[in-house]
């Protein structure tokens, strides 16, 4: 394929789909970097709610900004969104189906002695550190 043919091929492909509007990508990048700084500084305050919001809330916002502005998922055919959402749903199903067992340390006629001991050591260490 010649260079001109390749270029024509590219234009032909681009013409067959919704036009992608190239916005101000540097502005999006600046926002992402500011959010990154906030996600690092927020948890330093030591407040659990602030940590949760700044670390994981900001991660969701950053992922959304990248998906929308860099991956242009908003102008992709609707089934792409459904495809991604279905995979995320399966992830949640997996979590909901296995978490009740994984997150418990003991149940009816079973226990996790290694984890129970590890958690006891952790609690003892925390008590020693805080002096209570």
């Amino acid at each position: 394929m010649t260079s001109q043919q390749a270029h024509d091929s590219h234009l032909e492909t681009a013409a067959a789909e919704p036009h992608v509007h190239h916005g101000n990508y540097v502005r999006i990048w600046v926002i992402l970097v500011v959010l990154l700084v906030a996600s690092v500084l927020g948890p330093m305050l030591g407040h659990p709610i602030v940590t949760l919001v700044t670390a994981f809330g900001i991660a969701i916002v950053k992922a959304y900004l990248v998906a929308k502005n860099f991956m242009h998922i908003n102008v992709a055919p609707r089934f792409v969104g459904y495809l991604v959402a279905t995979c995320l749903l399966f992830m949640l199903l997996f979590f909901a189906g296995t978490a009740p067992d994984v997150m418990r340390l003991e149940g009816t006629r079973w226990e996790k002695p290694g984890w129970i001991e590890a958690n006891r050591s952790h609690e003892a260490g925390s008590r020693a550190a805080t002096g209570h």
Binding site: M91, F94, F95, T98, A99, V102, M103, R104, L105, W115, A118, N119, S121, H122, E123, G125
Partner: peptide, 15 residues
């Protein structure tokens, strides 16, 4: 998802 389960269920991960 597996990591989150272990992290939430076992405080010792924090150490």
């Amino acid at each position: 998802g597996s990591y989150v389960m272990f992290r939430l269920g076992h405080d010792a991960f924090a150490d």
